[in-house]
Amino acid sequence: MMNPEADNGRNRDELVQRLELMESMIAEGRRSTARFGWIFVLWGVIDIGGMVWQEAKPDFRWTWPIVILAGFAIQYAIIIGLRRWTWRQFCGNSMQTRSISAVWSMMGVTVLLYVAAAILGHGAGHIALAAAVLMFVGMAHATSALILRWPAQGAVAVLWWAGGMALYFLSWKYFEAIFVGEMVFGMILFGLYAMWLDSRSGSKGARA
């Protein structure tokens, strides 16, 4: 192009600025997920705890609603605590961050409604229920991975989906093993990886 002015009237600098803004938004979103890596670890531990409780009291129908509500309570208590300490650094507020927050909050609402409906409607024994919950979490990871263009999170999504599909072909007998595997690899280890990334970017920032 001979003329620096683009066809639609926008000059090159403006386009470069826009691209930089988008790239910084994606980077901010990824940093934000890394900053919230502890939530994945928390939920991995809480869910494994729920599984142990269910094993101990298999007839109690409200194990999971109680575990999930307790998980939310702990999560929000920690968030409130962290906000008091480091509000500015803690909570990025870019569009990307808000999108990721929308993905995970809606995933939480969906799983909560779905499991509650299944318990009330006596569908808790269906293998399709367990498979769907794993698929919902996989979908949230996949959406985040697509938004943030983060292959590591994409791999986690594939892991969750593979677990959900495997449940259909194996039986309830293997549910505990798959569930614990998902929690360890898809939640705790991914969360620790995200926390490691966050601490690395934090120390780089401090050095700069």
Binding site: M135, A142, W161
Partner: peptide, 28 residues
């Protein structure tokens, strides 16, 4: 992608008639 994988797995494994399966499609 999630719904296609879920439906295919349910269909092939013969679990496509459970209430939780139909419900999951709506929840997706």
């Amino acid at each position: 992608v999630a719904i296609i994988l879920y439906v295919i797995a349910a269909g092939v494994s013969g679990h496509g008639n459970q209430a939780a399966y139909y419900a999951a499609v709506f929840f997706f």
